[in-house]
Simulated assay, not measured.
Amino acid sequence: MKTTRIGIINVSDRASKGIYEDIPGKAIVETLKEYITSDWESEYAVIPDEQDQLEAKMKEMADEKSCCLIITSGGTGPAKRDVTPEATEAVCDKMMPGFGELMRTESLKYVPTAILSRQTAGIRNNTLIVNLPGKPKAIRQCLDAVFPAIPYCIDLIEGPYIECNEDVIKIFRPK
């Protein structure tokens, strides 16, 4: 059986230059290790807030590395250099706005500035791409909210069957 591949991209000018430690990307990996019981491996990158570089990395992970899921962190705010949603929209065939809506709804329980976030998700061929915020605490809150739908979404786009630890995350697949 083929190992499931998941792309993780931390979008950060400072982390890409080594000024900041890549805490968001590591937070995603640790969370997925808790959630997923199937065999999986990560395809990992830290890149600056440059739309062309982010688009190229997402295309590579989806098209060449066969990642069924790509999770990005950072670059979703209103600042001039925040271009993650634009890059995601540029490489996707279909947008999945419900992911962003749910993440913002969840984040509003904790901070009023969640309305400034532009998280989104989309599908490129057989790959689901989900944009998360850059703060580790918010990453976990958002993943806890949207991950229950992710394995079924991957089923629907003909990706691998992902099994999860039901004691940690209750995923939903219709019977």
Rank of each mutant, 00 (worst) to 15 (best):
E166S: 11
D144E: 13
P133H: 04
L69W: 06
T31F: 12
T72S: 11
R81I: 14
D52T: 15
K26A: 12
C164T: 14
Y161G: 05
A138C: 04
G75D: 09
S66V: 03
D155C: 04
Q119P: 12
L32G: 06
D52L: 14
V46T: 14
A27K: 14
N125T: 12
K26I: 10
V146G: 00
T37K: 05
T72N: 08
D144I: 01
T76P: 11
N131L: 06
N131Q: 05
Q119R: 01
S117G: 04
T37I: 15
K137F: 01
C153M: 13
P85N: 10
A145S: 09
V111Y: 01
K57V: 12
G134F: 03
T76W: 10
P97Q: 03
K57I: 12
M61T: 10
N125Q: 11
G75T: 08
G159K: 00
D39P: 15
I162D: 01
C142V: 09
R118N: 00
N125F: 11
T37A: 09
A114E: 03
Y35I: 04
I162G: 01
D39A: 15
A90E: 00
S38D: 11
E34S: 15
V91Q: 09
S117F: 07
P151N: 02
T72V: 10
A114C: 03
R140G: 05
C164I: 02
L156H: 02
Y110W: 09
G75F: 08
T72Y: 07
R104D: 05
N131I: 06
K80G: 04
K59I: 15
I36L: 02
V46M: 11
R118L: 00
N165V: 02
L143A: 01
Y44F: 15
M58S: 09
L143C: 01
D82S: 11
E50C: 10
P148I: 00
E89I: 08
G122V: 01
C92N: 11
T105W: 06
M61N: 10
K135S: 10
N125S: 13
E166N: 08
K135Q: 09
Y110M: 01
K137M: 01
Q141Y: 03
G77I: 12
A121T: 05
M96F: 14
